[in-house]
Design a protein around this nucleic acid. Structure first.
Lengths: 209, 209
DNA sequence: GTCTATACGATGATAGAC
DNA sequence: GTCTATCATCGTATAGAC
């Protein structure tokens, strides 16, 4: 069973975008990498922005799936770690989007609002998770602190990969979702009750590299 | 006394880069905006990357100045707020650098190492400040938490502006350094002693918008 | 120092045969 | 569906006159 060319274009583009940065990837490079002709690529996609739009659609779909957290959910710290790991893994797979955000958004303007929607969904997801921890009396926060924390969590998941890969340039450690989970754990730590914080410290060691 | 053309090129470029994103600003647009010819621009700068390199030099110089924090410094919370405000203000003035980081770094490769140097300098600066707070018994942290906190502070100052302007797209609130200060205050809050946290809460209100 | 004119290369995209 | 041309455009950069 052969993989459809259209899908191969998407996966190849994604890989190249992540590796080289979207602006450095020409339609010629994509078709070259796939051993097809540029004309063939343009048979499947009307333009380069269409490819990006479709990849963004995939990203959105995966994120929506991940962030569909019921407001009455009860998460354990273990489950939280698992969730975060999945989240960082997904963000890493579409990391090119955040590497040249302004450039990408300015060339494909409809992406702006779609980006903002995802952003607010991330914030709401974290809110649900924090609420859950609060209900379980693992965490205790006043309103302002909670707002600031969720904001901070959202910022961190969005930009952690960019930050980390800049710091670890060419390092083998780079691009391990676990590093992100570890960092977020330490963001939550100071707001947890003593026993929960102890548990999370132990858990954090498993994510440490 | 006339401002030198060379300097006007730099300030005009900076303004346009910040407003439109560096990849969207052509040398023609710069010279057009200044009412000079493209040839004239190329008389003063050998290439577009030279302009970016020089702007990056300015950014580095201002940052180095700001981050030259003596290890034995004693800062009050007030002074800390003032420092953060200056820091965010400077980062905002050179925000284009972080808006398309990968793209910029890939086209002007020598910037990579210079970026990393600044990054590590930021981390060390925050370390000195935290050490000062610790010495004054305003803050208390184990080693792992301190590392994670400084990492988090560095990430936040680098990407806060990008994050905030994405969230507040076209909003008037956007691009006020005070918002960044407020956010960083809440990052420090949970690690402070009760009285210091109270003081910082009050101070944070002044930065609230 | 500043201008006009232009070369050059790269890239997104199309036309038409197979 | 896929290929081989080929176009049109744009952006950087240079040459040479004033």
């Amino acid at each position: 069973m052969k993989v459809k060319t259209r899908d191969r274009i998407l996966t190849t583009s994604l890989a190249l975008f992540n590796e080289l940065g979207e602006p450095n990837v020409t339609t010629l490079l994509i078709s070259d990498e796939m051993d097809i002709s540029p004309g063939n690529l343009y048979y499947h996609f009307r333009s380069k922005s269409d490819i990006i739009g479709e990849l963004f659609g995939q990203y959105t779909a995966e994120m929506d799936d991940l962030l569909a957290i019921p407001p009455d959910v009860e998460v354990s710290l273990d489950q939280l770690g698992f969730f975060l790991h999945l989240l960082f893994e997904t963000l890493e797979r579409y990391r090119f989007l955040y590497h040249d955000l302004v450039n990408i958004m300015s060339r494909y303007p409809d992406l702006k609002n779609r980006f903002r929607k995802i952003l607010s969904r991330k914030g709401k997801g974290f809110r649900s998770l924090c609420d859950s921890l609060t209900r379980q009396r693992l965490m205790s926060l006043d309103q302002s602190s909670l707002d600031a924390l969720c904001e901070q969590l959202t910022l961190t998941v969005c930009y952690w990969e960019s930050f980390d890969s800049l710091k670890e340039l060419g390092n083998r450690n780079a691009m391990d979702p676990a590093r992100g989970v570890y960092q977020v754990f330490y963001l939550l730590m100071p707001h947890l009750t003593e026993s929960a914080a102890g548990e999370l410290t132990v858990l954090a060691q498993e994510y440490r590299r």
